[in-house]
Design a binder for these strands. Structure first.
Length: 428
RNA sequence: GUGGCCUUAGCUCAACCGGCAGAGCAUCGGAAUGUGGAUCCGAAGGUUAUGGGUUCGAAACCCAUAGGCCACCCCA
């Protein structure tokens, strides 16, 4: 027999970990509700063209990380697992005529994404994101609202010190000219450029600003900044975004070298980092305005903005701060028996309590009573229901494992007594 | 995709120069057949990631593969 294991870059979320993810998903759903984003689902895979066109052929996400599905037959369509949710959400928005809904259409998706890159801690081939999109609002107020919602997510998750890095990357009116300026600037220093960055000069000059090569630091520092060369409309938009952020009390750091990896972004761009870890490559989340994407995927020109927050990285960050990410619920009571062999009575009582909506575990292993109780306390159950000879006249022993007390209870009252106690029972 | 470090029981780790594969925790059982988190005793758990090679002898040395991690690339 071969030994099987989860594919590279994927992981099993075991119950302890899954509980932490569920908690984060709960916060995301709660925030979506509070901010007016409606939850939806999109397929885990799409026609590859949705990503190729939407995200951009030349981006790393499409060029090297797209998780393509081998076609089943020669004439079947080319599919790919979703590397992010925005393109799929916008595809659905166009497909279902949501342009007819009063704007903005605010949508939320939580689920796994797939990217075929080399795994590391916090970097997986299957990872979880919360994605929120406000489609049909040109901003700038909604830009600030989205950033604030992201920040609130981290705060409620238990990461109060998340830092916002903010930039404007211009739009079709001013970015092309800026790119030329940038190209000219770096071309003038071509001899100093590392090989990789020399190649970027043609393919993606914006990325030069992001280079971590020490030889580039001085060059980048004195390079022309997009933020200084925004057209009037973009500059006014950015100023207003900042005014709104200030009004909300959201602090942020201007990061003129912040660029985004996906082609569809324009104007507002931002990323979330742990305080003190801003320089690291692992963003907790990021987002921006993508005013051209709806049109790119076949809809009418429609402005939009959104973000994607990485749940895996939040869990990782919480673990690093030593915080308890989450705990699983423990049963209110465990049904144990004096006669190890009498699983019938234990199961019957458990079934009775469960039908009353109570969370109980029946000990079905034929172990002696001491061992049954031992396991019950180890799993943090509040009560043990001990079944013995008293059952003959309709009674059981109800033992409070936390308090160490015990008394005889008529079986008829058991559910009521436990339900009353549940109010004070802290699961876990 | 590039470079580097790592992989021994379910988990965390030992094993001196290449010479008997071990401990703690967890699990199961006994002390204690109707009373729990403590204690004592015991059991079970291993193709030393996988496949080759060197050697009288390999967990250890060499090669390949897989997986994990770190730095890039890039992002969540």
């Amino acid at each position: 027999m071969p030994t099987y294991r989860a594919p590279r870059g994927t992981r099993d979320l075991l119950p302890e970990t899954r509980a932490g993810f569920s908690r984060l998903e709960g916060i995301a759903r709660s925030l979506a509700l509070r901010y007016g984003y409606r939850e939806m689902e999109i397929p885990l895979f799409e026609q590859a063209a949705v990503f190729e066109r939407g995200i951009g052929e030349a981006t790393d996400v499409v060029e090297k990380e797209l998780f393509r599905i081998a076609p089943r037959t020669e004439d079947s369509e080319s599919w790919a697992l979703r590397p992010e949710a925005t393109a799929g959400i916008v595809r659905a928005y166009v497909q279902h005529g949501m342009q007819a809904l009063p704007p903005p259409v605010k949508l939320s998706v939580v689920g796994p994404m797939f990217r075929y890159d080399r795994p590391q801690a916090g970097r997986y081939r299957q990872f979880w994101q919360w994605s929120a999109e406000a489609i049909g609002d040109p901003g700038p107020a909604v830009d600030a609202e989205v950033v604030e919602m992201g920040l609130r997510f981290y705060k409620e998750a238990g990461l109060p010190d998340v830092q916002v890095l903010l930039n404007s990357i211009g739009d079709a009116a001013c970015r092309p000219a800026y790119l030329e300026t940038l190209k000219t600037y770096f071309s003038g220093h071509e001899a100093q450029l590392p090989a990789l960055d020399r190649r970027r000069l043609d393919t993606n000059p914006l990325r030069l600003l992001d280079s971590k090569d020490p030889a580039m630091t001085a060059l980048i520092a004195s390079a022309p900044k997009m933020i200084d060369r925004l057209c009037e409309a973009c500059a006014a938009h950015f100023t207003s975004v900042r005014v709104h952020l200030d009004a909300l009390g959201v602090s942020y750091r201007l990061e003129p070298t912040l660029v985004r990896g996906l082609d569809y972004y324009a104007r507002t761009a931002y990323e979330f980092y742990r305080q003190g870890a801003e320089g690291q490559q692992q963003a907790l989340g990021g987002g921006g305005r993508y005013d051209g994407l709806v049109e790119l995927l076949g809809g009418r020109p429609t402005p939009a903005i959104g973000f994607a927050l990485g749940l895996d990285r939040v869990v990782l960050a919480l673990a690093e701060t030593g915080a308890t990410v989450s705990h699983e619920a423990s049963p209110l009571a465990v049904i144990v028996g004096a006669d190890p062999a009498d699983t019938v009575s234990r199961l019957r009582v458990a079934s009775l309590l469960r039908s009353e909506g109570l969370s109980v575990r029946a000990e079905l292993a034929p172990r002696k009573l001491g061992r049954q109780l031992e396991t019950a306390s180890k799993e943090q159950a509040h009560f043990a229901v001990i079944i013995g000879d008293e059952l003959a006249d309709g009674h059981v022993q109800l033992k409070d494992l936390k308090a160490g007390t015990q008394h005889l209870v008529p079986l008829a009252d058991l559910a009521r007594d436990l339900a009353r106690a549940e109010k004070t029972h802290h699961h876990g």
